[in-house]
C-alpha cells in the first residue's frame, strides 16, 4: 500500500526527534564506567543528596496529594464565586519559570509577616531544609491539581448522585465512591508529583539555597558538581534523576495510558 507524502514526512519527523532524544538521554548511563558510576553513587555527598531528595520529595508529595485532592474536587464539583480566578492562579506556576517562583517564595517567606511569624515560631523556611519542601510543594501542586481535576472530571457524576440517593452525604460519597473510582488517576498523580518534586531545581535553589551537604538535593548536586568540573558526580546524579523520571513515566503510562 502506498502512503501519502504527508504521512511519510510527519512520521519521519517523529522518528528523527525520538532518535535524537534517545541518543542524548539513553547514552548518559553508559558514558561512565560501571566502577566509576558505583564509586560516585556510594560517595558521602551522593548518599546525602539521595537521602535528602527522597525524604523531602516524600514529604512534599504527601503534602501535595493531601491538599490537591480536595482542591481539585472542589474545582470539579462545586460552583463558587471566583472559581475561574482560583483556577488561573493555581495554574500560574506551570506557565512561569521556576526561578521566578523561587524568588516569589523567598520574598513571601522572608520579608512578609508570614515569614517573620513562622520564624518567630522557630520555623525557618529560606535557606533551610523546610525551604526545599516548600519549593517542591509549589512546583508540583499545580500539576497535581490539574491531573486530579481531570480524573474527577472523567468520573460520571451520576455515580455520586446514586450514592447520595441511598442516604450517603457528600463526604461519605466522596470517600466510598469517588476516591476508589479515581484510584488510577490518583496513583498517576502521586508518581508525577514525586518526579516533579525530586527534579525541582530553580525554585529549590533560590528558596533553600544550594548549600553543599545541607540543602543539597540531587538536581543541586548535579549543578554544584558541574560548577566544580566534577563530571562523574554530575553525570551520576543525572542518571539517578533520569531513572526516577523513567520509572514515573512508565508507571503513568501503565495506569493512565490504557494499561498498555
Amino acid at each position: 500500500m502506498r502512503h501519502s507524502a504527508f504521512r511519510n514526512i510527519s512520521t519521519g519527523i517523529a522518528c528523527f526527534f525520538t532518535c535524537l532524544l534517545f541518543l542524548a538521554v539513553g547514552t548518559l548511563p553508559f558514558i561512565l564506567k560501571p566502577s566509576t558510576l558505583l564509586e560516585a553513587l556510594l560517595s558521602a555527598e551522593m548518599l546525602y543528596s539521595m537521602k535528602l531528595s527522597l525524604l523531602t520529595a516524600s514529604v512534599s508529595t504527601f503534602s501535595v496529594m493531601f491538599f490537591s485532592i480536595p482542591t481539585a474536587y472542589s474545582l470539579s464539583r462545586y460552583d463558587f464565586s471566583g472559581k475561574a480566578l482560583v483556577k488561573s492562579i493555581l495554574g500560574l506556576p506551570m506557565a512561569f519559570p521556576e526561578l521566578v517562583l523561587g524568588l516569589a517564595l523567598l520574598l513571601l517567606f522572608g520579608q512578609t509577616p508570614l515569614g517573620t511569624g513562622l520564624e518567630a515560631l522557630g520555623i525557618r523556611v529560606p535557606f533551610s531544609k523546610p525551604g526545599i519542601v516548600v519549593a517542591q510543594f509549589f512546583v508540583a501542586f499545580p500539576y497535581a491539581v490539574r491531573v486530579i481535576y481531570s480524573t474527577f472530571e472523567s468520573i460520571d457524576r451520576r455515580y455520586e448522585q446514586v450514592s447520595r440517593s441511598f442516604g450517603y452525604g457528600d463526604f461519605e460519597t466522596f470517600r466510598n465512591v469517588t476516591l476508589p473510582m479515581a484510584r488510577g488517576g490518583l496513583f498517576a498523580s502521586t508518581v508525577i508529583t514525586f518526579a516533579r518534586c525530586i527534579g525541582a531545581f530553580g525554585a529549590v535553589l533560590i528558596l533553600a539555597g544550594g548549600s553543599y551537604m545541607h540543602t543539597e538535593v540531587l538536581p543541586v548536586t548535579l549543578y554544584l558538581n558541574i560548577s566544580y568540573g566534577n563530571l562523574d558526580m554530575a553525570i551520576t546524579s543525572g542518571v539517578l534523576l533520569m531513572a526516577i523520571a523513567f520509572l514515573a513515566i512508565l508507571s503513568f503510562e501503565y495506569f493512565e495510558g490504557g494499561k498498555t
Partner: peptide, 28 residues
C-alpha cells in the same frame, strides 16, 4: 437533598460502582 428523599434511580447504563462486586453494590 437526595440523601433525605428515599427515592432510588436506575439508569439505562446501570451506573454500577465498578470497584464493588454485585453483592457490594446492592449491600452499599
Amino acid at each position: 437533598p437526595p440523601d433525605k428523599r428515599q427515592i432510588s434511580i436506575v439508569y439505562q447504563d446501570h451506573v454500577l460502582f465498578p470497584h464493588m462486586t454485585v453483592f457490594e453494590n446492592i449491600a452499599y
